[in-house]
């Protein structure tokens, strides 16, 4: 039982990251009816922006020393004699990085939001009123542009970034089994859940959220009711890119930075289909289910199956519920 809990928690932590990625795809789809195939590459850009602001800029000669490593006297004193992997040592190592982590996150969110706005204004808005298929094809083309641009700007070099939270090991006993958790993963999960919850609340309870829902329901009617549909489009892309930046930063801390980060979006697309393209709650359930299923399969059947079993589940759900777990059923009237 203890082991079950261990792998279930591991799965939930992965699932929360999937949910954070999925929220961007759902936001864009809800507002614009466009499935953004390039979302993984927006996340990759977010990760590279985090790398730029948390590693490259603080490493420059002209950058203040405290930005690269904040070392007040009291912290140096506390650090002395501590083992690198001791819990307090790990917290202090992280604390020294706090300024650049904050700088990195703010920079990544702002730059990625700007990028999302730029994409919407220059590529998507001119296609408003055209077939949705054309807009989807633009997102497919965007994959090549974004991956090529990232290689040009940052090269394909693999690099590593600081953890967003202290990566202290956490151990506790459940049913006689020692459960191990990473501090950073727990914080990542909390961040992902908070952002996810915030967006859902925003869509449900705010004026902007009502406008998004109205646009999702019927763009023409929303227009005629005085809702600025182009503004909604723009907001959706900004929201997707900003949340994508946080997701990218988290992924980069777990896996390092490389152009392959962009591929992550494709596996999450399957999760979004399972949950329902226009349902935040459905996607959340799907992301958590796939995360847990992956961890359980890894535990019981090994990694060879871990990539297959969850996606078989996705297929089964889609066969029986083509609109996903909680997706809105569309009725075409002829």
């Amino acid at each position: 039982m203890g082991q079950f809990i261990q792998f279930a928690i591991n799965g939930l932590m992965s699932g929360a990251i999937y949910a954070l990625i999925a929220v961007g795809i759902v936001s864009v789809f809800k507002a614009t009816k466009v499935v953004n195939f390039a979302h993984g590459y927006l996340i990759m850009f977010g990760a590279y922006f985090y790398f730029t602001f948390a590693v490259i800029i603080p490493g420059q000669e002209w950058a203040p020393a405290w930005l690269a490593s904040w070392q007040p006297g009291w912290m140096v004193e506390m650090r002395q004699g501590l083992n690198m992997f001791s819990p307090l040592g790990a917290v202090l190592d992280w604390a020294a990085n706090v300024p650049r982590i904050i700088f990195g996150l703010i920079g990544a969110v702002l730059c990625n939001a700007l990028l999302g706005m730029l994409i919407e204004r220059s590529l998507m808005r001119p296609l408003m009123g055209q077939s949705v298929f054309a807009m989807i094809m633009v997102t497919v083309g965007l994959i090549s542009i974004l991956s090529g641009a990232a290689s040009l700007i940052w090269t394909a070099d693999a690099a590593f970034v600081p953890h967003i939270a202290p990566n202290t090991p956490i151990r506790f006993e459940v049913f006689g089994t020692m459960v191990f958790l990473f501090g950073a993963d727990i914080v990542n999960m909390i961040i992902a859940l908070l952002i996810f919850g915030g967006i859902v609340a925003m869509v449900k309870f705010t004026k902007s959220g009502v406008a998004i829902r109205a646009t999702a329901e019927d763009q023409s009617t929303a227009y005629s009711m005085g809702i600025s549909v182009p503004k909604i489009f723009s907001r959706a892309w900004i929201l997707a890119s900003a949340t994508g930046a946080v997701a990218g930063a988290i992924l980069a801390t777990r896996n390092g930075i490389s152009p392959s980060l962009g591929l992550f979006g494709f596996s999450v697309l399957a999760i979004v289909l399972m949950g329902g393209l226009d349902s935040y709650v459905g996607c959340f359930i799907a992301a958590m289910s796939v995360g847990v299923l992956e961890a359980m399969t890894q535990w019981k059947l090994g990694g060879e199956w871990a990539e297959i079993v969850p996606y078989v589940a996705v297929l089964v759900v889609i066969i029986f519920r083509p609109h996903g777990l909680m997706g809105q059923k569309e009725v075409e009237r002829i």
Partner: peptide
């Protein structure tokens, strides 16, 4: 232990847990 992982984006906590056990 013979543990297979994804080539990228592996679930590190799960693999480390299995290694520890």
């Amino acid at each position: 232990l013979e543990e297979s992982t994804k080539a990228q984006g592996a679930d590190i906590p799960t693999h480390v847990t299995k290694l520890a056990q």
